[in-house]
Amino acid sequence: MADTMHAGDGQTRRDFIYLAGAAMGGVGAAAALWPFIHSMNPAADTLALASIEVDLAPIQPGQAIKAMWRGKPVFIRNRTQEEIDAARAVPTAELIDPQPDQARVKEGKDNWLVLVGVCTHLGCIPLGTSSGESKGDFGGWFCPCHGSHYDTSGRIRKGPAPLNLHVPEYAFLTDTRVKIG
């Protein structure tokens, strides 16, 4: 009957089989779960757009463009010498998020500033890229949502944002072509 228990060897072998069955069931269920979860990660076509190439030739000094990268705008600014000088004149210690301008551009390409155009406060898009938009108190960008001011190096100078605008991973393929991501 059901309540009969076998002693000795039979007992342990039986326990082992139940344990093995339960373990395999658990492992199988966990393994089956992974494909479903992984399906929510970026798909191959999304990953194929993870890097973009941008032609810099049409951007005149003093001008900036926006490019779409991974669903977010990237600001690319061809800075004038005055703007570079302004950015470098500020003592680093005075900054909210201290970082020298040199660390935010590629060496020898000091005029090219490439930034992820998302305010580090709460994710709005700062103004200042297109001509006619407010560039804020420091000649860079101004976020209209909560009044964060960024300078000509994209560093936070005034307002609630805690960090400088992010510099994405990028590389110059040629003098006028840059690969972002």
Partner: peptide, 30 residues
């Protein structure tokens, strides 16, 4: 999980299913 990737529009429905089959991780299996 399929509904997370499916596009419910006659213009895109067929292609969105094929995107599941080709691009979505494990989409073909699901």
């Amino acid at each position: 999980f399929l509904a997370m990737h499916y596009t419910n529009n006659t213009l895109y429905a067929f292609d969105s299913v094929e995107r599941i089959m080709r691009d979505v991780n494990w989409g073909w299996m699901i």
